[in-house]
Computed example of a mutant assay.
Amino acid sequence: MQTLSNDILSVTIAERGAEMQSIRDAQGHEYLWQADPKYWAKHSPTLFPIVCGLWNDTYHLDGKEYHMLRHGFASKSDFTLVAKNDHRVTFALTESEETLKVYPFHFNLSVTYRLDGNTIHVIWHVENTDRRELLFSIGGHPAFNVPGMKDGDPLDGYLRFDNPNAERLYGNTHGCITPGHHPLEMDGNVWHFTCADFDDDALIFDESQLHEVALLDRERRPVVTIGFRSPAVGIWSPTAKNAPFVCIEPWYGIHDWAEFTGDLSEKYLINRLQPGASFMSEYTIRIG
């Protein structure tokens, strides 16, 4: 475990998956979901080299068939600590014999966490170290405790979107998306959610409709605000469990379209890097 701290926040990150484990304020209040396996045994996994699901957990590349489970392998991989000070830490992952079996690319992936006042910057850097074009998706999956909820309570929370007209996709066809955008019933730009709202799995927003989502308390004051530039974002809590958390997930990538069997290069929102090129982006988590 590695810890970043200042007089406002303390953030703990594991080398396994380069995954945040805790976000606490100076009073000891925990904002990040604590991975109770009764609901979901994760905190904030890194999604790479795919985001969400492939049709039949399968993709095609250069006429060959490969199999990869939902969200890829990064969250299950041991990263290497490469740099650390009181306010910044960087972890790195490269290809291995095992990853090459399911993802035949050479790459460098680094995940950096930078603590600045009440804001955490989560920075992704992907470098193509292969001799051919690198195809990838990357995303975050942080889970936050819903304010005012205790274990056993019905799920009851509020999110504020920066676009009151955002429309969702559905991703519940064998874990893949179907065409068509659907409006949400909101009070202005505030969405009141309950467990039933996740009966169709995550709410998925593409086409860069959103760039900020805030988790509000019962008085509709922001508790956690996620800022991002990614073209897609998912909102998720486990179906039919009344889990006391909600995930706000910035994505550079998305599920397959249902029944998609084309080449990986044709996948919706796939990212491309030429040999020697690199990709960098970040999302932010602001507390309070």
Rank of each mutant, 00 (worst) to 15 (best):
I123A: 03
V146W: 04
L155H: 11
V126S: 08
Y158V: 08
Y158F: 10
E167D: 06
D153N: 14
R168E: 13
N165P: 12
L134H: 02
W124L: 08
G139M: 03
F144C: 06
F161Y: 10
L134F: 02
G148T: 00
T129K: 12
A166F: 04
F161T: 06
D130K: 09
F136C: 11
L169P: 08
M149K: 02
P164K: 15
G157W: 04
F136G: 05
D151E: 13
I123K: 09
D151F: 08
G139P: 00
R168Q: 14
L155E: 06
H125R: 14
A143I: 07
D130V: 08
D130A: 13
G139T: 01
D162Y: 07
I123H: 05
L169T: 08
M149W: 05
G152H: 02
N145M: 15
R168P: 13
L155N: 06
S137R: 12
L134T: 00
W124E: 07
S137W: 11
V122L: 06
L155S: 10
L134I: 01
L155M: 09
D130T: 04
E127Q: 13
P154I: 02
N165S: 11
G148V: 01
A143R: 14
V126K: 00
R160D: 03
F136I: 00
E127W: 06
T129Y: 04
R168Y: 15
D162E: 07
P142Q: 09
G148R: 14
G148D: 07
T129M: 12
R131V: 14
R132P: 00
N163F: 05
S137N: 09
K150F: 03
G152L: 04
F136M: 07
G140D: 00
N165R: 14
N128T: 05
V122M: 07
R168I: 10
L155A: 04
A143M: 11
P142W: 03
D162N: 14
V146K: 13
V146Y: 03
A166P: 03
E167L: 13
G139Y: 03
E167T: 12
D130W: 06
I138Y: 03
D153C: 09
Y158T: 07
S137H: 13
V146N: 11
G140R: 07
I123P: 02
P142D: 00
E133T: 10
T129A: 08
I138Q: 03
N145S: 12
F144Q: 13
V126Y: 00
L169E: 09
N145P: 02
L155K: 15
H141F: 04
V126C: 10
L159H: 01
W124R: 15
Y158I: 03
D130H: 14
P147A: 00
I138R: 14
V146M: 09
D162G: 07
R132S: 13
R160Y: 03
F136H: 00
I123V: 05
D156W: 12
Y158S: 12
G140V: 00
D151H: 15
D130Y: 10
W124C: 04
R132M: 07
